[in-house]
Amino acid sequence: MDYDFSFFLAVATLVTGVIWGGYLLVLKSTGATFDEENEPVLVEYARSFFPVVLIVLVLRSFIAEPFRIPSASMMPTLLIGDFILVNKFTYGIRLPVLNTKIIEMNQPKRGDIVVFRYPKNPAVDYIKRVIGLPGDRVAYYDKKLHINEQPVSQVSLGRYQGVGQGEDMTGNELILEDLTGVEHNILIRNGAASAEGVYVVPKGSYFVMGDNRDNSNDSRYWGTVPEENLVGKAFFIWMSWDWQHKGVGFDRIGTVLK
């Protein structure tokens, strides 16, 4: 069990609910009527906070959860300082804190941008793009992908001009990649060494990579992502803040991710 924000949110919901509900039961058992003016301070706080934390817990656990992008590994799709929303139900409904799936939904598709608990340290959330599905054979050589012996289409778009905190990526090659119908841009730093090899994706797992191919700690280095580590699918940028230049990236707000 991870003692993260979800854990403390669940505890707050439980504690405030027990205090407020217990007080009502005591009133009912004694035949007393509710009097807001004589309500104990602790009960008053519990009554006020319980519906708030409950709504936040439900929304965050079953609907959508916000995340902030802390690194450049998904450039140019996601920039440092982007705030995204992650769909929490598209891959199945899970109980908060326990992360136990109770309702089956969809399976990740090739090209999905997913948030997951890092297999080496489940307390840390990572975000990458799904490249390989269970049973796939993924090969990465000379900065090119092959999936099940088929080359993945790549079209060079020229030199990338970095923006904001991603300015140091200026000069990388911008490439349009087509993952069997899912087109997205990636960055390649020609001349830079990167992990290469052939990887067979085991059952119940996914091979993921960052769009910033030469600046991403992904499945090439630590293996695949087990299905139970999936948190959800990233789908929307709701805010973007350039920490380096101290400004809101208004042009990025409202971007639908693909």
Rank of each mutant, 00 (worst) to 15 (best):
F8R: 04
V248A: 13
H146V: 00
G171K: 10
R137G: 12
L179H: 10
I113P: 02
N172T: 12
S205P: 00
L157K: 15
Q154G: 00
G158H: 05
D251S: 15
E44K: 14
K143S: 12
A139Y: 03
K258S: 08
T90D: 05
L257W: 02
V201Y: 03
L133Y: 08
V56W: 02
I93D: 01
L133A: 08
A234N: 04
F50Y: 15
V130I: 15
S153W: 00
T90A: 06
E196D: 03
S73E: 09
L59Q: 06
Y23I: 02
D2A: 09
V52S: 11
G249A: 12
D211N: 08
N121R: 14
P66W: 05
Y199N: 09
G232S: 03
G17R: 02
V53C: 14
P202R: 03
G249I: 06
P76A: 10
R220P: 01
F67G: 02
E104Q: 14
N121I: 04
V182A: 09
P151I: 06
E167F: 08
S48R: 14
V152K: 04
V208F: 10
I131S: 12
L24M: 13
P40S: 09
G158Y: 06
Q165A: 15
L145G: 01
G232I: 01
W222V: 14
D211P: 05
I131V: 15
V18D: 01
R60E: 00
E227P: 07
Q161G: 09
E36F: 09
